[in-house]
Design a protein around this nucleic acid. Structure first.
Length: 191
DNA sequence: TAGGTGATCTTG
DNA sequence: AAGATCACCTAT
């Protein structure tokens, strides 16, 4: 299957792209081992005007500078001291749009994923939750800034059958964002 | 439902 | 230089 190419990522509408990422596949290749699965949950973070975004108001720091890179870059940061959260940067250089990958359905390298997650059985929620996604695929903050067009972390295109299975809701864990906390920027694929 | 966890950011 | 904050997870 073809990798998502740069022109997919370099588009204006991060909310639309977030929806389109449902049903695509996310892979990592760590120490020669490929793990991955189908993306089933995403959230859009819409740049400098979005109060929930790390880049709100144009904030540009050592951490957030990666969000200003060109579409098709990985933005990974540490949350609550424990969890690496993986995001896809979109849009042009210096436009800090990002999409948080909140859940996948694992399909490749299940053995490795179970080992990384310290679980013995494949359950429906094994990789549901952004911290779990990174743990399952071996993604760490060291991966922040790398290209998603390379051979370490990448996405592949699939057509999903219908949009009827998509649920839209407000984003999780951003109560600090005022009225923007209610924006319908979370997308879940009901499989 | 609450506590663990530590890098990051803001304030002083 | 220090304290508050935080795009979460696990277990009770």
């Amino acid at each position: 299957m073809p990798k998502l190419n740069q022109s997919f990522y370099i588009r204006q509408d991060v909310v639309q792209i977030s929806k389109e990422l449902l049903g695509t596949y996310l892979y990592s290749k760590i120490n020669g081992v490929i793990t991955g699965g189908m993306i089933v949950e995403t959230e859009a973070y819409a740049g400098v005007e979005d109060k929930a975004s790390h880049a709100y108001g144009g904030r540009f720091t050592e951490r957030t500078k990666t969000m200003y890179k060109i579409g098709g870059t990985a933005y990974v940061y540490l949350c609550y001291g424990i969890h690496a959260l993986f995001n896809v940067v979109t849009n042009d250089l210096n436009v800090p749009h990002a999409i948080l990958i909140r859940g996948i359905k694992p399909t490749v390298g299940i053995e490795t994923i179970l080992k990384r997650r310290q679980k013995s059985k494949l359950t429906n929620d094994l990789c549901i939750g952004p911290g779990k996604v990174s743990q399952a695929l071996g993604i760490t903050t060291n991966h922040t800034g790398i290209s998603l067009l390379g051979n370490e972390i990448w996405l592949e295109h699939r057509e999903i059958e219908t949009s009827d299975k998509i649920s839209i809701s407000k984003r999780i864990g951003i109560d600090y964002a005022g009225e923007d906390a209610n924006l319908p920027y979370r997308f879940v694929l009901n499989i």
